[in-house]
Write a protein that binds this DNA or RNA. Sequence first.
DNA 1: CATGGGGTCTATAGTCGCTATAGGGTCAAG
DNA 2: CTTGACCCTATAGCGACTATAGACCCCATG
Lengths: 143, 143
Amino acid sequence: MMTSSPLTIGDLAKATGTKVVTVRYYERIGLLPPPRRTGGNYRAYEPMHLDRLRFIRRCRDLGFTLDQVRELLHLSSQEGKSCGEVDRIAAAHLAATEEKIADLTRLAGQLRRIISRCEGGGVIADCRIIEALSPCAEEDESC
Amino acid sequence: MMTSSPLTIGDLAKATGTKVVTVRYYERIGLLPPPRRTGGNYRAYEPMHLDRLRFIRRCRDLGFTLDQVRELLHLSSQEGKSCGEVDRIAAAHLAATEEKIADLTRLAGQLRRIISRCEGGGVIADCRIIEALSPCAEEDESC
DNA sequence: CATGGGGTCTATAGTCGCTATAGGGTCAAG
DNA sequence: CTTGACCCTATAGCGACTATAGACCCCATG
């Protein structure tokens, strides 16, 4: 059984689909522990870093904020603790995501309605889209 | 028929549901033309500013970026021009919005699936959420 | 006329999650 | 020994605001 040699930042980045600058950024904000350095001052990552970065990326792909990731990382190391907090974070994020979907759906509906009124061949002065974007004040008698 | 007196920035903000700082920000980035100033150096807005800011807010509420708003504002003043460009911007934004909805929907589905596997009463070491967030590498024999 | 409170002014820095740039150092292949 | 790919730090920029500090103005009340 061979022991794997440490990874350069480029290896780590490629293995996780992260950009090199982003890896350094995660280190700077304390998400990824600083690895030891080689003689030439290169970062030398261990498999543990790979695991951790993969965890971070997976969370980010799921839309968690970096603060939530930080909390999840912290919790994931407390093996004996109840997992209620984890559940709470995930549920909150799901709720937020569902709300965002609802908002965007409502919005898309409005956009479709606005766009459908436009004949497309007209000029700006008659454009239904511009008109729809120009809400009239109640006290404005010209509307 | 009475002529309306100029508005303070606070009046304008309240009338459009914008924050005062945001109004100043729109001026700084060239979206809202600088109004004349009073003796005390206060901004004094005309009805035209009200119209323009309402247009901006409506666009923002519909999710257009400030750059798109800038372009729409520019186009809306070209009364004789064809409205094809307006249509293009709106359609592009609708497409982007629909894509975002699709992304978030996929994401919410994954989150629901992950969360549903968690019994809630367990400890972190057995937490299905943490587990689901910890993707295993193919070359990692422990998975 | 003084005072107090609320609104306004500018300028600057912070937010989030990166991304880009400048100006260098290191390393391995040819 | 040179070339080119990689790595290093530090700093600034993105979008769309938001927050803060410190000063100024205006109006109503005493």
